[in-house]
Simulated assay, not measured.
Amino acid sequence: MKTMFTYFRITALLTIISLCFIGLSCKENTIQPEFFGSINGQVLSEENSTPIAGASVTTTPPSNAIITGSDGRFNFTDLAVGNYTVAVSKNGFKKGSVTVSVKENLAADATILLEKEEGNISPDIPFDPVPANEAVNQQINLTLQWRATDPDKEDSLLYDIYLYDSNSPSPVKVASDYTDTNYVVENLNYNTTYFWQIVVKDTGNALTNGSIWSFKTREIPDHNIVYTSRMNDNYEIFSVSNNDTSSLKLTDNSSRELWPRFNPNRTKIAFTSDASIEPQIYIMN
């Protein structure tokens, strides 16, 4: 009986000691609250304190990148409290930065003065493309448009234009030393993604490569009428629909293509051609 009592005493004592160790090893985990503030600022020219538009503004620690508007202003919101370095870059100016302290529910002010670079300065990157980048449902005949500026206001600009589709092994230059910011392209393929790029150079031969933009042409029209029209002493086949006034040229040969007819499902067109001297019947998809 005494032995059994001693056993229970030892067991109880060990249990108490274990609970004490568990209690000592357990600590309460606390979550520190985060506080946020913002940065409001403006980028100005050191020379005359005029606002600088189109400047790229970033922060360290990183947040997002902002491009200044016409008033040179920028705004970073929802920044965790702490110290930040605000860095600014703009073509034609030396880079600038400033360190600010972000405090809870307050907006820190940051004014950054940029010093203009000396000598000939490269043109700015072309912008405002038309069609807009990644535009879809574009016509097969359209006008490419863009805008470009140069920090050296007296410089005139020339453009090399590249245009190619997604199957091209390399970019294709379609114009060199072009002087306008509008370029007409015609007879593109339907339902095709095209890429285009503007390379701009100034009178001092400083060169800037533009971004590569893209657009996709419209689907092939669902035409229900085919006909022949005379062009350059030949007859070519065209298609059109009752609801679409724009016609689609289906042939472009030195021979005479005549009498086009749809099959019942309008998936193929039969026509005659004298491409082999004697008129023969041909079928196109």
Rank of each mutant, 00 (worst) to 15 (best):
K153C: 07
K153W: 05
K153L: 15
K153S: 12
K153M: 11
E154F: 14
E154D: 12
E154Y: 13
E154V: 14
E154H: 14
D155C: 08
D155V: 11
D155M: 12
D155S: 10
D155H: 12
D155L: 13
D155T: 04
D155I: 08
D155Q: 11
S156K: 13
S156H: 15
S156F: 15
S156M: 08
S156W: 15
S156E: 06
L157A: 03
L157N: 09
L157K: 10
L157Q: 03
L157R: 00
L158A: 11
L158D: 11
L158I: 09
L158S: 13
Y159A: 00
Y159K: 01
Y159W: 01
Y159R: 00
Y159D: 00
D160G: 05
D160E: 05
D160Y: 08
D160N: 15
D160F: 09
D160A: 07
I161R: 02
I161V: 13
I161G: 01
I161W: 05
I161D: 02
I161Y: 02
Y162I: 01
Y162W: 13
Y162K: 05
Y162E: 14
L163C: 05
L163F: 05
L163P: 03
L163W: 01
Y164S: 07
Y164D: 08
Y164V: 02
Y164R: 06
Y164C: 13
Y164K: 11
D165Q: 06
D165T: 09
S166G: 06
S166C: 09
S166I: 12
S166E: 15
S166T: 02
N167T: 15
N167F: 09
S168C: 02
S168W: 03
S168R: 07
S168E: 13
S168P: 02
S168Y: 03
P169A: 06
P169G: 08
P169I: 09
P169K: 06
P169T: 08
P169W: 03
P169D: 07
S170K: 08
S170T: 10
S170V: 10
S170W: 10
S170E: 09
P171N: 03
P171I: 04
P171F: 06
P171Y: 06
V172K: 12
V172P: 03
V172M: 14
V172T: 12
K173D: 02
K173F: 04
K173P: 09
K173H: 09
K173I: 15
K173L: 13
K173Y: 08
K173W: 00
K173V: 06
V174G: 05
V174K: 00
V174D: 04
A175M: 08
A175T: 04
A175F: 10
A175G: 01
A175Q: 03
S176Q: 14
S176F: 01
S176H: 01
S176D: 12
S176Y: 05
D177V: 03
D177H: 11
D177A: 08
D177S: 12
Y178N: 01
Y178K: 07
Y178G: 01
Y178D: 02
T179N: 05
T179I: 07
T179R: 05
T179M: 08
D180S: 07
D180R: 06
D180Y: 09
D180C: 05
T181F: 04
T181W: 04
T181P: 00
T181S: 07
T181K: 10
N182D: 07
N182P: 05
N182C: 03
Y183S: 04
Y183T: 01
Y183L: 01
Y183V: 00
V184S: 11
V184H: 15
V184D: 11
V185H: 05
V185A: 14
V185S: 02
V185Y: 07
V185N: 05
V185T: 08
